[in-house]
Amino acid sequence: MTVEDWFRHDRLPHIFCAGCGNGSIINSTLEAVDSLNWKVDETVFVSGIGCSSRAPGYIVTDSLHTTHGRALAFATGVKMANHDLNVVVFTGDGDLSAIGGNHFIHACRRNIDLTVICMNNQIYGMTGGQGSPCTPTGALSTTTPYGMDEPAFDLCDLATAAGANFVSRWTSYHVRELTRSIKLGLQKPGLSFIEVMVQCPTNYGRRNRLRDVEAMVSKMRDHALLKEKYDRLVAERKPIPEGSFVVGTLTDRNLPALGVRR
């Protein structure tokens, strides 16, 4: 099999906007799945509502496109009823951390054997650019016309604190690193959470002086601080560059997990 064989070709072309990074995240995911020789008929992709959640519809496996925020609860049912299925969840920052926040922390606490890939575009893209719990302070959106006046969630901190076995963050720029990280997550028993910072030129960029896709991706690349470098700066008591965010494997442990295939 190749990555091509995992796509549901009769559903293409997809609905993502020009310049959207979701496609490369789907690609990385399928590349990782394929490299592990996972079987199409033993794999289920589950999602909620939003741009990210359209991903399972383009993949040829059994797939469940559910209600807003509830993908993890549906996925928990699939995995608990049949441990032999590989279950991967696609979600977004609004779906996962606003309406689905409770399901997120509980799935992590249970450490249920799912791989959760969050496409964090820091905005509600599907509904036209409203602010999300991951919209940076000060950023403009249709519901924060004077700038976001709330702090954003750190989804990886949340997943780690709640008990997930594997937590990593990359961006849509870091395709190779992301693919490797997803592969690690897929293999890890328990809950693996992979946050992918992704550009939304249509609904985030154009309201925040990042109209150009390349400018958006470059900004992500330039502000991504490798975990190893971050740790070194902290150890040396040097300042962390302003506006940066940490990328890499943030948590990797082997706490008891639920729903693991025997």
């Binding site: 059994d62 469940l64 049912g77 995995k79 608990m80 409770n102 399901h103």
Partner: peptide, 11 residues
């Protein structure tokens, strides 16, 4: 979540 999980299980 209960209703969601039941639907997931049923599938």
């Amino acid at each position: 979540a209960s209703m969601a999980a039941v639907i997931g299980g049923a599938w």
